[in-house]
Write a protein that binds this DNA or RNA. Structure first.
Lengths: 251, 251
DNA sequence: GAAAAAATCTGGTTTACACCAGAAATATTT
DNA sequence: AAATATTTCTGGTGTAAACCAGATTTTTTC
């Protein structure tokens, strides 16, 4: 089944820490790294591991949380623990959209529009767009998948003056492409910001994740040639879904 | 002292989740965000909070772990929980070293050399440098601080052929500057990679952090004009110490 | 007053139960 | 065979109690 060495894995530990849960962690980690447990594989249940490792369930869970923080495993709501697929590499300096860089890495991207509507700009957002508070603004909420796993939820704000009626278009694809092709709006500057966060209630619900789990918050502001803000995007990512990679040369 | 509303904070919760520990989290989070608990402030002890919140210690700890993952608080080994200072903004596209961008943000950077030695290149590292396995290589281990808090530990590899005797120099400063000023080696390309990780035994020990806590792994490869690898740097960061920000324009 | 020893406080870890709600599998009914 | 009800399984949460080892503070000793 998995994990059933009685207590033999107690010995080869580093004497520095005497943390049982890190032992359990190591056992599982090794099985994943060795490929014994394949990507996406379903781990045995916590109670099975409890019996197999002779550790209390709380200890087993501590180990699972640790592995989750490391991005090695993840959980589906109440269905179980799974081996995490490899993360996708993202280079913020490249002018590539989600669909593009995900498929370039041999993974299957998918975008789903959750909702579109016209709102009146909240103060904070209005400031970014340099428009009056409560001015009209489009809001698009989307969910994106990699290989069938929901990895991020995003809320995009667009200025209706730059792209009137954009909500009528098909938004399952690159929004930047739609803006370029239908409105002649070209993005020439991107401001990207990333930081760890806790997933908000709605984000975690949309990602089928337990509320409050750590995630990655990415904010992106896109500008056009004349310096106008075209798009303000707030993305909540699974923390284990991407890796950042930047390649820079002096010009 | 702090947190002593008997059970009044039970009401204003979102009815979706009935997670007690998120209630405790919210109370503490609010006190931090409102500024009632200042940056760097020492939180009451877990046992005090246990009594004050009427929740079991395990529940209190769950809340603390949550806040830690969010980067709002951190802990010193066995001394207690503290409010986390604001994170530092790092822009991988800028040609600025640690000392430079940290002080530019009004924070006090500090670098401490832990060890320097000559090693024979492990296979993986040798590949990066395009040298023979076991070829000589310099290894520098440093620890860096922001406002007195250790935030990262790094291991730098340097090719002795490019910078013979570099270990004799003062390495408390920017290594890139030393290479430039004393060896005429200029870095013109940087390859940076970031991903969440679990802090290794030695990293966590050096950072005075409980072993196994999540962190951020940053790898940097620096190239000179002729495409030679000048420097290979592996950095283990506290996950709450930095924020990534990139500003890109089409050329 | 300074150094050393002792008591106390703090997080760190583990155990063992108990109960809940959603997911999944199974048995039942139509 | 398909739709439906039921049972079982899975993680999610909370409690209470112990014990450890390093940090810190207090007390004692010199």
């Amino acid at each position: 089944m998995a994990i059933n060495k009685p207590a033999s894995w107690m010995e080869p530990r580093n004497p520095a820490d005497n943390c049982h849960y890190l032992d359990v962690r190591d056992v599982i980690a090794k099985r994943i790294e060795s490929g014994e447990l394949e990507k996406g594989a379903h781990l045995p249940s916590e109670r099975q591991m409890e019996a197999a490792t002779l550790a209390a369930r709380g200890t087993v869970r501590a180990a699972l949380f640790q592995l989750e923080a490391e991005g090695l495993i993840y959980r589906k709501n109440r269905s179980g623990w799974y081996v995490a697929p490899p993360s996708v590499v993202y280079d913020p300096t490249r002018w590539e959209g989600f669909m593009s860089y995900v498929s370039a890495q041999g993974r299957a991207p998918l975008t789903e529009v959750l909702s579109t509507r016209e709102i009146s700009a909240p103060t904070a957002v209005a400031e970014i767009f340099s428009i009056a508070p409560n001015a009209p603004l489009y809001e698009i909420r989307r969910r994106r998948y990699i290989d069938g796993r929901a990895v991020l939820i995003e809320k995009i704000h667009v200025d209706p003056r730059l792209a009137p009626g954009v909500l009528e278009h098909n938004l399952d694809q690159s929004l930047t492409a739609v803006l370029r092709d239908h409105y002649g709006v070209t993005v020439i500057r991107n401001q990207v910001e990333m930081q760890p966060c806790a997933l908000t209630q709605d984000a975690s619900a949309a990602l089928c994740i337990k509320s409050g789990l750590p995630g990655l918050l990415m904010r992106r502001i896109s500008y056009d040639v004349s310096g106008r803000v075209v798009e303000y995007d707030i993305e909540h990512w699974r923390h284990d879904a991407l890796k950042i990679s930047v390649d820079i040369r002096i010009r």
